[in-house]
């Protein structure tokens, strides 16, 4: 019973990743794509959790946390890039800056 449920959940999550992928490819605007990528990350968290239960292991629990942080960081990086054209801003007072 649980097995069936878990497989069904995994399939639904994979389908959702696939549909997000459609949005990544299709766009139409850049923020659409970035949000879709972020959603893929979140779906991944869920999928990894389901798989953890499915495989009866705790080995992937750190990964869930890491994906949570990194998907966020990636989205921030993209967002900042779209907003300012730069990911890391230069320190204006630095003598090497030109």
């Amino acid at each position: 019973m649980l097995e069936g449920m878990l497989t069904a959940a995994a399939i639904i999550l994979s389908l959702s990743i696939l549909t997000c992928m459609y949005r990544v490819i299709k766009g139409p605007s850049m923020p659409d794509r970035i949000i879709a990528l972020d959603t893929i990350g979140i779906n991944m968290i869920a999928l990894v959790a389901v798989l953890c239960v499915h495989m009866k292991t705790q080995a992937f629990l750190e990964l869930i946390l890491v994906v949570g942080i990194l998907a966020f960081l990636g989205t921030i990086a993209f967002a900042k890039y779209i907003e300012k054209g730069v990911v890391l801003e230069h320190d204006r007072d630095h003598p090497d800056d030109r």
């Binding site: 990544v24 490819i25 794509r33 990528l37 893929i40 990350g41 990894v48 798989l51």
Partner: peptide, 25 residues
């Protein structure tokens, strides 16, 4: 170029998922 990067990121994420599926934490 930005779209290509996002797609590359998506490929990387899915790769991670496959490592999970293939049990490589």
């Amino acid at each position: 170029r930005l779209t290509a990067i996002i797609l590359l990121g998506a490929v990387g994420y899915l790769m991670t998922t496959f490592f999970v599926v293939l049990r490589a934490p």
